[in-house]
Amino acid sequence: MSGLESLYQQVILDHSREKHGFGLREGEAASSHQLNPTCGDELTLQVHLSEDGATINDVAWEGAGCSISMASASLLSDLAAGMPVADAPARIALFRELMRSKGAGVADDEPLGDAAVLEGVSRYIARVKCAMLAWVALEDSLAQLP
């Protein structure tokens, strides 16, 4: 697989178009707006929690940007649905480690589910921010929870 094809795997291109979790709605526990000033990519993400506040029911988001930032938000939406709030920081940290791995990957990317297909981004330093956009928005949202 060429560099470009490993960056833009079919599943990534599919997610960039299908955008799972796209669409904001009322009732969020927290939300965050993130902007990548170098390219103008923009994203607002909401966290919707279970009644007891222990589980992420789903993350909803809206935004505009490159295929990497859109696919990453979509993949995060799939991964986060049903995730215990307490588990989220470690997943975000693992994803960040994967993105900063410069192509080396991480020992165990299983906890990232399909989002691990974004590994190819880590070879392109200029694009890591694109992939991180939604994850930073989730991190920021969780930090606002009581």
Binding site: L4, Y8, T38, C39, G65, C66, S67, R127, C130
Partner: peptide, 22 residues
């Protein structure tokens, strides 16, 4: 249908340097 960053990445893969963004 194609974001400028993606177009720029595709061109870069072919050795073509252009500017993308605002």
């Amino acid at each position: 249908g194609v974001h400028a960053h993606d177009a720029g990445q595709f061109l870069d893969d072919r050795g073509i340097a252009v500017r993308v963004g605002h």
